[in-house]
Amino acid sequence: MSAGSADSDLPAGIGRPAHRALAAVGYTRLDQLAGRSARDLLKLHGMGPKALGLIRIALAERGQSLDD
């Protein structure tokens, strides 16, 4: 499932730095990211294009998306 906490459903492939960056601002669940700004997420230290792409895919599988 994920490299983060047991209650996280963020994609495991995003890596630990991205997990830490998201957790630092309170995001531990994929549904919390739906509708959030992709640009703002990329500003987080530890978030990169690969992580953002994997989040986009995981959200799309749920019929959700980031705000571009």
Rank of each mutant, 00 (worst) to 15 (best):
L10M: 14
I57P: 02
A6P: 14
R36M: 11
A18P: 12
L33Y: 12
I14Y: 13
L44P: 01
L54E: 14
D31K: 05
R39M: 07
I55E: 06
L41W: 07
A18I: 13
A12H: 13
K43F: 00
L66D: 05
S5A: 14
L41N: 01
L59Q: 00
L41E: 07
L41G: 04
R36Q: 15
R62D: 00
R39S: 12
H19V: 15
G26N: 07
R20W: 10
R56S: 12
P49E: 15
T28W: 10
H45G: 03
A21H: 10
G4F: 14
D40F: 02
L54V: 01
R56M: 07
D9T: 05
G4N: 06
R16A: 14
H19I: 15
H19D: 09
A34K: 03
A60N: 07
G4W: 13
L42C: 01
R29I: 01
A34L: 04
P11M: 09
G46E: 04
A34V: 08
D31E: 14
M1I: 11
P11I: 10
L59E: 00
A21Y: 08
S5Y: 09
D31A: 09
L59R: 01
D31T: 08
G63C: 02
M47R: 01
R62L: 02
Y27P: 06
L66Q: 00
A12Q: 13
Y27M: 05
S8D: 10
S5E: 13
R39A: 14
D9L: 03
G13A: 15
L10Q: 11
A12L: 13
A21N: 07
Q32L: 08
I55H: 05
I14Q: 11
G48W: 04
G46H: 03
A6Q: 15
S65V: 05
D67Y: 07
L52V: 08
R29Q: 14
R29D: 01
R36H: 10
M47C: 05
L59I: 00
R62V: 03
R56L: 01
T28I: 09
L41M: 02
S2A: 14
D68L: 09
G4H: 10
A24Y: 04
G13I: 11
E61W: 06
